[in-house]
Design a protein around this nucleic acid. Structure first.
Lengths: 171, 171
DNA sequence: GCTGAAATTCTGGAGTG
DNA sequence: CACTCCAGAATTTCAGC
């Protein structure tokens, strides 16, 4: 990667594990003034190294206790299909959507209010892709041992009975 | 969810799509003073609704252009296996690790410098789980159409030749 | 990339319904 | 109890170097 040094990468790594750290704190960690960190960060955002910032939310608190992984095998990914996929990606209960190698070429993770909503979603997928979808399969997420680069503040789908070793640090 | 109202959920949704929004801005969006937003947010963090904050980083800029989805079928998930999984989750090239229903009961997403590193990783997985791993399969992520609840600022693994319709908004 | 000063935001406590 | 207001502290931001 041209124009990116180890300082920049360190900034990216820190920001990945603590997205709300202040520029001042970040500056202390990488031995740079807040202003310098800011200008580097602006560069990194401009270059697309930083896609955005997000809070990691337990979907149960948003009324979506059912998380599913959905695998789709598409016969071909033509421009028309891509527009469908783009639309799918824009849904606000879809966390991620990947094109991948392997038996199924699409993987999607979504949140649902209940099994009925998941069923409806699958039905609409079938309708959307029609004969182009050679196979659609859904798995339920039973437990998230890790999500999104955060440290061990893990949780269960059935409401964290886990020991709370280590509060998140923001200082 | 007891003790969580629509205001709280709105805060969670906003924070999920913009993790670095300021309390003042957030307050404007939900018609609350910064101080109130702060106390609600503290409650939400205490309850575990907010797991943490993260920047979404293009792994290529960290020297890991290869992203893989790895499926594992474990014969059983006993306490010993769980400790292995926890260790796996703690690796800093592992983005997520789920237990799930279906043919393979573990799904992992990881970043790698190159194919060799991926191969080594798979080999170490085989060694770690031994005969308990009935199957280990790896797929490559070809394209991320969506990742982590951010809007359409999508990118390709092979360095964004995509049209840049829509800059990320932070205000 | 740093400094310094102005603008903005954060934060904790007192006060209100 | 949840909220607002307010003042001091911290952070962000931008100019100039």
């Amino acid at each position: 990667m041209p124009g990116i040094d180890e300082r920049d990468r360190e900034i990216l790594r820190i920001l990945r594990s603590n997205g709300r750290i202040t520029l001042t704190e970040l500056g202390k960690k990488v031995n740079l003034s807040p202003a310098s960190v800011k200008s580097r960060l602006e560069k990194l955002e401009r270059l697309g190294a930083v896609k955005g910032y997000s809070a990691v939310i337990d979907p149960a608190f948003l009324g979506n206790p059912v998380t599913a992984l959905i695998f789709i095998r598409l016969k071909d990914v033509d421009p028309y299909t891509r527009s469908m996929l783009r639309e799918l990606a824009s849904l606000d209960n879809v966390e991620f959507l990947y094109l991948k190698t392997g038996d199924h070429n699409v993987l999607l993770k979504g949140e649902f209010r209940d099994m009925d909503e998941l069923r409806e979603f699958l039905k609409s997928l079938k309708k959307t892709f029609g004969v182009n979808a050679l196979s659609i399969e859904a798995n339920l997420v039973v437990e998230e041992l890790k999500n999104c680069w955060l440290a061990d503040t893990h949780y269960d789908s059935d409401c964290g009975r886990e020991k709370d070793y280590g509060k998140r640090q923001r200082s």
